[in-house]
């Protein structure tokens, strides 16, 4: 936070009912260290009460406020205005891609959450082993009994950014595949590999690595998808030699 003041134009995507979407501009005086979500909330509070957007925790633990900010997926509650524009500049806010729009900036997460549920994605995981293997030593000293909430906050940013998810409604999507990888690592449940070993599962990914670039929560979905591929291949090879069912 600072005592600096910027004038910034928020260009907000609006959509009500069946009317075609359009953009509406709001000029705001902001502290550049405020977050984009603070700006959106102020537009609602002081300029236009009809603005619809999704938000809850305001500190990146719930994943409700994913939006497109100047064309890039951001968790708006932890995206400082300073990081996306300059004094006198613009902040274009749109709903996430690849999800049905409910209204304005709010999208329908039903399909995504249903897929996460079908994957038995764990929300509480042991602290030890909850970091990625390449994050050397992180949490490795933790008592085996300690647990924590998982990294994935189900914000949908990765699915919005994925260049393959744009064209394939049936594609499970990065977060779901990453969740399958983590669930398999924890439970060893082979059914997860079977489920993801298919054209709309682990093999649909085209190695764009956009998911990892936009993930606000250290999930690294692309790494997990590649790891899941290895596990799927490993299982196929074992099956070939009659070592697995």
């Amino acid at each position: 936070m600072s005592h600096e003041r910027w004038t910034v134009t928020f260009i907000v995507s609006r959509r009500k009912g069946e009317q075609p979407p359009h953009f509406q501009s709001f000029q705001l005086e902001v502290d550049p260290d405020e977050y984009v979500l603070d700006g959106v909330e102020r537009i609602w509070a002081f300029h236009d009460r009809s603005l619809v957007f999704r938000h809850a925790c305001h500190h990146s633990t719930c994943g409700a406020c994913g939006m497109l900010v100047n064309g890039v997926e951001k968790l708006t509650c932890i995206t400082p205005i300073r990081s996306v524009t300059s004094n006198g500049g613009k902040v274009k806010v749109e709903p996430l891609r690849n999800f049905p729009v409910i209204s304005d900036l709010s999208v329908d997460m039903s399909t995504f959450y249903t897929r996460m549920e079908e994957t038995c994605a764990p929300q509480v995981v042991p602290v030890r082993g909850s970091a990625l293997p390449y994050e050397k030593g992180l949490f490795e000293q933790a008592d085996p009994a300690y647990e924590r909430l998982a990294d994935c906050i189900e914000c949908g940013c990765c699915i919005s950014a994925c260049p393959v998810a744009v064209t394939t409604p049936e594609y499970q999507g990065p977060a779901v595949l990453a969740a399958a990888q983590q669930a398999f690592s924890l439970t060893g449940h082979a059914g997860l590999l079977e489920k993801m070993d298919g054209a709309d599962g682990v093999w649909r990914c085209h190695s764009g690595f956009e998911c990892t670039a936009v993930c606000p929560s250290n999930v690294d979905p692309a790494w997990r998808i590649m790891d899941l591929r290895r596990k799927v291949i490993g299982r196929r090879i074992k099956r070939l030699f009659g070592l697995a069912k």
Binding site: F99, P163, V166, T167, T168
Partner: peptide, 12 residues
């Protein structure tokens, strides 16, 4: 228009 569709291949 905001949902995935094969018609959107130009986004690639």
């Amino acid at each position: 228009e905001n949902q995935p569709s094969p018609k959107k291949f130009l986004y690639w």
